[in-house]
Design a protein around this nucleic acid. Structure first.
Lengths: 278, 278
DNA sequence: TCGGATTACGTGCACCGTAATGATC
DNA sequence: GATCATTACGGTGCACGTAATCCGA
């Protein structure tokens, strides 16, 4: 059995070209390295070096040996990282969804059921959802449609209705409901995390100008500082519903979305509890 | 860096199932192995075993680790054998030919030019010759035809004429030459090492009965003990030409063969000297 | 004379073995 | 009581460092 320290020293010598440079790189002394090279050679039983009195270099055999030594070291170096990757994978639930609110709900549920698991989340656009599961990019995906893919499981997860929050004094505030058409040409605040809603609004509201904010703080500031209407939803938590504002449901059918929870059939057994609970 | 002894111990434990059995297999003590398993676990930083007070077994992480450990050990165990194989390959000339005599001549030449090289020889049938070179099964091949394969080099090597050795007193001994037809229906001794000649004789001599001998000693005994004719050739060394026998050339064109020496174009540079010398 | 390789010799550490303890069937 | 795993402690082999030598540019 060739010990790893010998392989590393051989490779270091191959990379450095001289014993002294290699010894320097390895943080050992020249004599130690010299002896190691002799040890290696005696273990192989054939010459690996071409030596003169003050020079040593790899011969053809030595170069071949270095090739295989590199492979062996590589295989060795992979053991721990690959095992750790497996471990982490076993302790991580990878969640993707098209709505931050829906993702947030799912996170709460996962934390309840699997308090020791690490959760990772990604906000994605809808069309790729089934592929993301089949590629094993994610474990749980929240989509806006069920799937008929036999490899996947899907179940209704949440319903969300889009709403509009407007200052109490404005004309719109008097309506019990509004429709998309009523909002034509308006400037309306929205949060990027709303995901699919952004596209739906752009499609449904003529000439709308959506003021999409990437982060929630900016949005809150703008809501407070302006009289602009802002999109809200039936899933928005109560604390988001500001004073001095009224929240009006949007009556259109397109303002209602059903989210579905999807996972692969093979992964389903890990998430049976979640699927049973929703 | 995971030392190989740890990997071997881990794998041995995976194979044996208990520390005591594994320790026995490894010829170390149980406490030593127990400590090694703890060492490994601490190097990984995650649990690899499921332990009760008097039992220890691999968990999912441990099983993955064992997989990668096996790979790493395999890669390590390949280093020396693969390098030795390369070394031997570099110091071996692999010869194949369709005639023991021609091979013998080539061996003499190789020994002169490359006295330190190991020579291996195989007696082969003709048709496969070019393929044997292209498959890298052999370095030098003696065939009965040149080749027009652009990947190969061929050069005339030796000419051989088939002869017949008969006891001095017999009727055939009076002829200066004989033809295959004269030998119709006869019992004639031959040596298996004659290779292609066997087939030629069977094709050319009507109803011939060839008494083919595998080894040279048997043939010599039969030649001495009988008055049977025996095939000889222009390449046969003089000591084979027995007293009390005369050797008669066979006049047919088919009784003359030209041998060609072949090698691959890539290998040619190693054998330039030989090709130049013939 | 300097840089690079080898030889000689002393040392520290890490792995192993022996002995003892704990725990389960 | 037998088997299996773990803890404690002492010993030893071996790879490394220091020092010295040899050789070539």
């Amino acid at each position: 059995m060739l010990e790893n320290y010998l392989l590393e020293q051989l490779v270091a010598f191959a990379d450095a070209g001289t014993l002294s440079k290699a010894a320097q790189a390895l943080h050992i002394t020249q004599p130690a390295l010299s002896k190691s090279m002799h040890r290696i050679e005696s273990l192989f039983g054939i010459p690996l070096f071409h030596r003169t009195h003050s020079h040593i270099e790899l011969n053809a055999n030595g170069k071949i040996a270095v090739q295989y030594a590199r492979r062996a070291l590589k295989a060795n170096h992979e053991i721990i990282p690959e095992t750790l990757a497996f471990y982490r994978r076993q302790h991580t639930i990878r969640i993707a969804g098209c709505s931050t609110i829906a993702i947030h709900h799912l996170i709460q549920i996962c934390q309840d059921y699997y308090p020791t698991m690490t959760l990772t989340t990604s906000l994605i656009s809808y069309p790729a959802a089934p592929a993301l599961l089949q590629n094993d990019d994610y474990d749980l995906v929240i989509a806006t449609r069920a799937t008929n893919d036999p490899q996947l499981i899907s179940k209704p997860f949440l319903d969300e209705r889009l709403m509009l929050s407007v200052p109490a004094g404005t004309p719109l505030a008097k309506h019990k409901k509004v429709s998309f058409r009523d909002l034509a040409g308006m400037n309306i605040l929205a949060h990027a995390g709303s995901g699919v809603w952004i596209n739906i609004c752009r499609q449904q509201i003529p000439k709308v100008n959506l003021l999409v904010q990437e982060n929630m703080q900016s949005l809150d500031q703008l809501v407070k500082a302006s009289a602009l209407p802002v999109f809200s939803s039936s899933l928005t938590t109560v604390d988001k519903q500001m004073a001095d504002r009224v929240t009006i449901p949007i009556r259109d059918g397109a303002a209602q979305i059903s989210y579905y929870l999807l996972c692969t059939r093979t992964n389903y057994r890990n998430f049976k509890d979640i699927f049973a609970g929703i």
